[in-house]
C-alpha cells in the first residue's frame, strides 16, 4: 500500500502550547491518498481538520505548534524534512488553497505577479515565459480575458474569481497533490458549485490527487471518492463515499447525515446533534463521542481504536451490530 500511495500519513499528532501546558488538537491520524485520488476530510469546526491540512506543509505557527508522527509524500517525510526541502516541495509537488481567497492573496501585488512569482520560484523560466504561462493558467481556471486580468489587483475581483486565481496559482507548477482547506465555504452557493466542478475537472485532467477539507458532506459527495470523518481530533470513519452514504457505520457519521437539510424533511424540524464537541483541554477518556451518542453503552468508557471492518475503518465498539441510516 505504501508503494502505491502518494501521501501516507501515519499516527499524526498536533499539539499546541497553551497556558495550561501542551494540548493535543489531533492525535493518531493515519490515512493515505493514492495518486489522482480525491479524499474528503469532514468534520465540525474545531475538529482539527484545518490544522491537519496546515501541518502537512509546515504552516502551523512554529512558536506554539508541535507535530509528531509521520507524513510521507512520495516516500519523503514532510514533517522532518528541512525547511528548504519543504519549500521546494510546497507549491511544486503539493499545492494549497484556502478558505478566504480575499485574505489569502497579497493585496498589494497584481494577481499575475503573484502567479508568475510562484512559477519562477520553482522553475527556471524567463519573466516573459512566466507571464505567458500564468495567463494560460488563468484561462484554464475559467477567468475571462486573462491578459487583462493579469495586471489586476485582487480586491477588484469577486470572491469566486479570487478563488479561481488561488487555484491557478496553486496549480501553476502542476503539483501531484492539492490540499483544499474549505475553499468554497466563503462563497455563494452557485459559485461554490462552479469551483467544485473546476476542481473536479482539473483533478481528472491532470491525474492530480485532492485532499478536500470541508464541513459539508454534500460537497464531498459530489467531488470525492473517499471520505475521512473527523471528530474531536480523531478519525472516526474512513470509507469509500458510496458505502458511507448508503450505510454509515459510526453513529457520528450517521448523525451528520441526519442533520443535513433534505427534501424529505420539508416542514419538519432539522435534527441536530445534541451537546457540544468536548474541548481539547478536557477531553473525556474512552469514546469521545460518548456523551452525544444515541447508541452509547456502558462499555464506551473504554477507548475505541480505529479498526477495519470489510471495506472501511471505524472507531466504534458497536460498528458490527449497529445498522445506521444513511443519506439515501
Amino acid at each position: 500500500m505504501a508503494v502505491s500511495s502518494l501521501l501516507d500519513v501515519d499516527n499524526l499528532g498536533i499539539f499546541f502550547e497553551t497556558p495550561r501546558g501542551m494540548v493535543p488538537t489531533v492525535s493518531g491520524i493515519s490515512f493515505s491518498v493514492r495518486p489522482g485520488e480525491r479524499v474528503g476530510i469532514v468534520g465540525e469546526s474545531g475538529c482539527g481538520k484545518t490544522v491537519t491540512g496546515l501541518s502537512l506543509l509546515g504552516l502551523l505557527p512554529p512558536q506554539v505548534a508541535r507535530v509528531s508522527g509521520r507524513a510521507l509524500f512520495e516516500g519523503r517525510n514532510l514533517l522532518t524534512m528541512s525547511r528548504s526541502q519543504l519549500r521546494r516541495l510546497s507549491g511544486a509537488g503539493i499545492g494549497m488553497i484556502f478558505q478566504e481567497p480575499m485574505r489569502a492573496l497579497d493585496p498589494v501585488f497584481t494577481i499575475g505577479e503573484q502567479i508568475s512569482e510562484t512559477l519562477r520560484a520553482h522553475t527556471d523560466v524567463s519573466r516573459r515565459e512566466a507571464r505567458l504561462r500564468s495567463i494560460a493558467a488563468l484561462a484554464e481556471v475559467g477567468i475571462p480575458s486573462p491578459e487583462r486580468r493579469y495586471d489586476d489587483y485582487p480586491h477588484i475581483l469577486s470572491g469566486g474569481m479570487q478563488q479561481r486565481v488561488m487555484i491557478a496559482m496553486a496549480l501553476i507548477c502542476r503539483p501531484r497533490l492539492l490540499i483544499a482547506d474549505e475553499p468554497t465555504t466563503a462563497l455563494d452557493v452557485t459559485v461554490q458549485a462552479q469551483i467544485i466542478d473546476l476542481l473536479h475537472r482539473l483533478s481528472d485532467e491532470r491525474g492530480m490527487a485532492l485532499l478536500f477539507i470541508t464541513h459539508d458532506l454534500g460537497v464531498v459527495a459530489e467531488l470525492c471518492t473517499r471520505v475521512l470523518i473527523l471528530y474531536a481530533g480523531q478519525i472516526v470513519e474512513d470509507a469509500a463515499i458510496e458505502s458511507v452514504y448508503r450505510a454509515p457505520k459510526h453513529p457520528y457519521t450517521a448523525a451528520l447525515f441526519q442533520s443535513m437539510p433534505r427534501l424529505s424533511l420539508r416542514g419538519k424540524p432539522l435534527p441536530v446533534i445534541g451537546g457540544r464537541v468536548p474541548g481539547f483541554a478536557d477531553m473525556p477518556g474512552g469514546c469521545r463521542f460518548r456523551d452525544r451518542c444515541a447508541y452509547a453503552q456502558p462499555g464506551c468508557v473504554r477507548k475505541p481504536e480505529l479498526e477495519s471492518y470489510d471495506d472501511r475503518r471505524v472507531r466504534c465498539f458497536r460498528a458490527c451490530d449497529l445498522t445506521l441510516p444513511g443519506a439515501v
Binding site: F16, E17, T18, P19, T50, V51, V64, A65
Partner: peptide
C-alpha cells in the same frame, strides 16, 4: 481556526 492562544512567557 487560528485561535492559537499565547503562552504566558
Amino acid at each position: 481556526m487560528s485561535r492559537f492562544q499565547a503562552i504566558p512567557g
